[in-house]
């Protein structure tokens, strides 16, 4: 970036007498805030606040919500426990323990697959990294609440059947 042509010393603008007297400026400020106050009092319905639980904002289809695990045709998880997602995860929130699958055509499967939703930053890199399209963040669920920390660590069974609402 070039600063050529800009004055090297920026001079402070001198305040006029009425500005430094402060009182007039306070009155001007009061007028501005008062204008907001009156407008909002007269048009309560036009405030930008979304009355959340009753009304909701619309999110786009690419919105990243809570994760889910995709299934094969037989209902078992598509995941082959390659650890790509847990490797790429910047929050280190995915823990997978791989196991030997009885079917040699599948060979490797996740014995456990847990996501710590408290650590997750919802960046979506796990989706990007997955070679099997096994993990997706398209549930659109963003209200995730529980009254204890343990509930936020969700397991494979939960993620495979993940169309419940936010309460864990």
């Amino acid at each position: 970036m070039s600063y050529k042509g800009l004055p090297e010393v920026v001079t402070r603008r001198r305040r006029s007498f009425w500005e430094s007297a402060y009182f007039v400026e306070i009155c001007k400020g009061l007028f501005v805030t008062g204008r907001h106050l009156v407008r909002n009092l007269l048009h309560t319905g036009e405030m930008p606040t979304v009355q959340y639980p009753e009304k909701r904002r619309e999110y786009g289809p690419r919105f990243r919500g809570r994760h889910r695990l995709m299934k094969r045709a037989d209902g078992s998880p598509r995941c082959v426990a390659c650890m790509m997602c847990s490797t790429v995860c910047p929050a280190d929130c995915i823990t997978i323990v791989a196991g030997e699958h009885p079917d040699p055509a599948i060979e490797k499967f996740p014995k456990t697959f847990t996501i710590d939703l408290l650590r997750c930053v919802y960046c979506g890199l796990c989706e990007e990294a997955c070679p099997c399209d096994a993990i997706r963040m398209d549930t659109g669920i963003y209200e995730i609440a529980a009254d204890n920390r343990e509930s936020f660590v969700v397991d494979k069974e939960f993620l495979l059947d993940n169309d419940k609402d936010g309460t864990l």
Partner: peptide, 9 residues
């Protein structure tokens, strides 16, 4: 090309 499940990957 089963790198995801291959220990050598």
């Amino acid at each position: 090309v089963d790198c995801p499940i291959c220990d050598q990957a």
